[in-house]
Nucleic acid binder design. Structure first.
Lengths: 345, 345
DNA sequence: CTGAAAGCGCTAACAT
DNA sequence: ATGTTAGCGCTTTCAG
């Protein structure tokens, strides 16, 4: 009997000890002392004792009762990708300060996994969602929307769904990168992207198309099918080999660039002499690579701030006001960080 | 009234619909139909209807009642570090298959943050912990131990605490790396590590010391104080500058190597001609760098497998049997992946 | 100002 | 074989 685990203190214990009612303790703990006209003296006495014994309310019971978990579900493409890792880290930090916890998961851009994760979050009764949606999750997101649970998408959005979202102006980002290459005298520019129809990918491609069209230059676009590493590497390798007359290449995401650098090295091509390179997203590798790689950087801090601000705002003000659910769509600018890989030597 | 959110189906609803008792439904759902001698026919009828309406039990209520959340708390140093990201990903995958969910957080090696996280997990009633402990969290871990909640540490352990842990043989790993350098004819080898007292760091250093002592070579060890990026970079930069007579250098972690490569590039030193380099942990950057960097790789898959197996085992068999709490300590081997950065040209 | 009491949705003795 | 019922720990009216 005595070796039994020491029981956690319950609200009941502290009420009994102070010889007040459970309700009083609960009210004080939830900051409703004033409106329930509980004397400051008593309130303080409660707080003091609570602190003394280190009482922590049972979250499960609290959530069951209130229907609020104070947990936000964050679904990203890949938490080990520095871009998502940084945004997630900032979101977590901000949310934490405002009393929310984040639980995150990676979809690896797999639709069925994403569906599973969203369902799992529903089961866990998260109060809100932050999602980087792969294609085909419209249905799950609709369900969330219908249940009036706050959602903010980022990096890309679902055109058919009225949700809040934060994205960057990828069209402009790529366009500027292309302009920069043209100014440096590179004229035969290729664009390597994925074969996905996600909005951010389409936008980035669009910027390339636009820049090429303006100058009446030939477009060389490679849509890589994202499967296993070897296949991707081989694919990019051949594309580069088959387009040896190109003098510059823009990759639409950081991981494609990584494969690209490997393929370029395999073919012993020199950057930027044989081929100039520009990538999306900054990364240790790009900064330290020899030569350093020019990147179209996304404003990670601003993305994180907008995401969490909008979500927390919705969490505070449940949109009861009928259809006045003003959707917030934020488009942020990218910035070109010029390094050696795109400078004519 | 009608615009109200559609209510979730409750166990009560399904019991009423089938005209059976709530208990029957609950028993069937929890696989206790057989032992409660519920007819197969009924059981199937229940299951069929549950599936039809897509009933999902309320986890919160279930957890409150059973005291089990089926959630495992994973505390790593930095989830965006490829080493931890990979291990975490594998752990998550395995746990998921066995019905457990993982919620993870990064400590950034900050003791107070780690304490906070562990406390948060306690509040959330996780069923078990997987922790990469920074220094000074002995107290929080003791609390978990005392409450008989399963814990597995990895990457490093807490010498004073009887916990399960999975680590690699860092002493041997570094020793082999040093041997390799010596065989290649490098004789003036430096070792760059952090100033932390964590077991894995001490072990790695030990391997270096041992190799140097065996040959009676001078030891040049730099203990970098991990603060902000600029400071770290500057620190490593000066160390390298002050030891220009060194012909090889071993870094005790992947992130130190990244700063190291930057510092080496700044000083326009050529690898391996001016300085051979070996790093701990594999990484895209090391594989793709020019020249490719030799690494002491950790068996990430095996680490993950051991961690989750031991934890799930404990979760299945609550160690009631008094002090028979057999501690599991697993030490795995590292493997040296030789690349150009450590080959005499 | 405070206490009693009704649940939140589910599980698992304990009855039948 | 199946139903009844007492909670898990907390919040929140509603009457004092």
């Amino acid at each position: 009997m005595n070796s039994k685990v020491k029981k956690r203190t319950l609200i009941h214990d502290i009420a009994r000890h102070l010889d007040v009612s459970i309700a009083t303790v609960s009210l004080v703990l939830n900051g409703k002392a004033k409106q329930s006209r509980i004397s400051d003296a008593l309130a303080e006495r409660v707080l003091a004792y609570v602190k003394e014994v280190g009482y922590k309310p049972n979250h499960l019971a609290k959530s069951l009762r209130t229907g609020k978990t104070h947990v936000i579900g964050l679904v990203v493409e890949d938490i080990s990708n520095p871009f998502f890792a940084t945004v997630a880290w900032m979101i977590e930090k901000q949310a934490f300060e405002r009393g929310y916890r984040i639980i995150y998961c990676s979809t690896d851009n797999d639709t069925s996994k994403a569906k599973e994760l969203i369902t799992m979050f529903q089961d866990r009764h998260v109060d809100g969602y932050i999602i980087v949606p792969p294609e085909g999750v419209e249905e799950q997101v609709s369900v969330i929307l219908r249940e009036q649970i706050p959602v903010v998408l980022f990096d890309r959005y679902l055109p058919d769904l009225p949700t809040n979202y934060i994205v960057v102006d990828g069209t402009k980002g790529t366009y500027e990168a292309a302009q920069h290459l043209l100014e440096q005298g590179f004229t035969s520019i290729a664009f390597v992207t994925t074969d996905s129809k996600q909005t951010q990918m389409e936008a980035r491609l669009q910027g390339y198309v636009q820049a090429m069209e303006e100058r009446g230059l030939q477009q060389r676009v490679k849509h890589v099918n994202i499967t296993d590493s070897e296949k991707i590497l081989a694919d990019i390798h051949s594309f580069i080999a088959e387009n040896r007359d190109c003098d510059a290449i823009i990759f639409s995401t950081n991981y494609l660039s990584i494969y690209g650098l490997e393929a370029i090295a395999q073919q012993k091509l020199r950057i930027p002499d044989d081929l100039a390179v520009i990538s999306y997203d900054d990364h240790d590798l790009f900064r330290l690579y020899t030569p350093a790689i020019t990147v179209i950087a996304q404003p990670v801090e601003s993305i994180a701030k907008n995401v969490i601000d909008i979500l927390l705002d919705q969490l505070k003000h449940p949109s009861d006001k009928e259809d006045t659910t003003a959707i917030q769509a934020v488009v942020l600018p990218t910035s070109l960080v010029v390094r050696k890989s795109s400078i004519r030597s």
